[in-house]
Write a protein that binds this DNA or RNA. Structure first.
Lengths: 201, 201
DNA sequence: GACGACATACCAACCAGTTGGTATGTACAC
DNA sequence: GTGTACATACCAACTGGTTGGTATGTCGTC
């Protein structure tokens, strides 16, 4: 029942508030209020707002990675099935939730900071590409099994992440989270076609 | 040789500055400086910064729509070819350019404002979905020709836009515009597969 | 008694928006 | 054709609230 320490509470607040408002529109006071700490605590743990953003990107990875690492699809024997079940999990994770809950902190922050705050952008890039990296072995195995040897597993892993990021943007812009679910279905269809045997009969 | 009026210069400045810095991080003074006008002129033409953002989303549509309307792919006889050439054009438009130059104003602003500024979000949504709308007739005809009657042309048009938006995000986060070009290739491959004859022999 | 983890009080810079103007045009009366 | 009334487009200086950041203090623990 004990609360996590102020640093963790601030990083958790950052995840939620920044995904809803964006990085620039989020003030240090916003985060302190949400986390229930004072400004003194904020600047005790982080040298600046920007330094907090870098830590938040890392925290985002620390929070989300275990969810995927523990997901049941890893137990599936066929690599193609594992990849498709990963997408199905992503779809399930955004169903009946608002964009602030299901969208990606790293993608949101990267959009705003890529040109003006290189350290934040790099932290966000590392989070997204690092996650993509975890998909490569299964994708590679699935491509090998289907005979699609000309395709790059890394490129396909990045495409999957890009599809999800785009789905978040469209869901936000369209004011309709089901758009994102639809995009997952298209991604699934694309992967099913790639993983099907004998591409050129 | 006469310069466009202050209002147009401000909206052009908004397109460039906001795509590089994001909406919240862009100050009214930033836009005035870039446009070469004073703050008085800004608030003469726009009631508020937010009202300017709504006008900028419309201006974005006004500037970009003619580019696609005039593109040569419309002359192609096969609908599938028209759709694939559209994607090829999108890919060409982002080659050898920086994200600030090729990314989408509406997508960038929607990310930051969807939860806090409904009018801006709706203007951005209208811009993106309005553009998607223009693709539907060709996509529908291509799906009809390939016998893919169960797929929604609208859903596929939105997926194409979402793929592009995601490509922008990944290109920014990864610090590498070629990621976006790669994503266009995957989208092309997906569409080629859908538009191929006889899906279930 | 020193150090880490916070809290309180405060500041200088900045920002959206306002105020009070000027310059130019234009429509109409006389 | 010229004086009056009004509109549009723009400018420079100012304002009050906000923001990231700091200086200093307190409390519990080792």
């Amino acid at each position: 029942m004990t609360q996590p320490d102020a640093r963790t509470r601030l990083l958790d607040a950052a995840i939620n508030v920044i995904r809803a408002q964006g990085y620039s529109a989020t003030t240090v006071d916003d985060l302190c209020r949400t986390a229930g700490v004072t400004k003194g605590a904020f600047f005790h743990h982080f040298a600046s707002k920007d330094a907090m953003a870098v830590a938040a990107a890392q925290h985002w990875t620390d929070v989300t990675a275990p969810i995927f690492a523990a997901a049941p699809y890893h137990a599936r024997p066929e690599p193609a099935r594992r990849v498709l079940d990963y997408v199905a999990l992503r779809k399930a994770m955004l169903t009946d939730r608002s964009p602030a809950e299901f969208s990606c902190l790293a993608g949101t922050m990267a959009q705003e900071t890529y040109d003006t705050h290189p350290e934040i952008r790099d932290a966000c890039g590392a989070s997204i590409l690092g996650h993509a990296q975890t998909l490569i072995p299964d994708i590679q195995a699935a491509l090998d099994a289907s005979g699609r040897t000309t395709l790059s597993a890394r490129s396909l892993a990045i495409f999957a992440q890009s599809t999800l990021q785009g789905a978040f943007v469209l869901a936000k812009a369209g004011g309709d989270p089901t758009i994102a679910a639809d995009c997952c279905d298209h991604l699934t269809r694309y992967l099913e076609q790639l993983f099907a045997k004998e591409p050129t009969p």
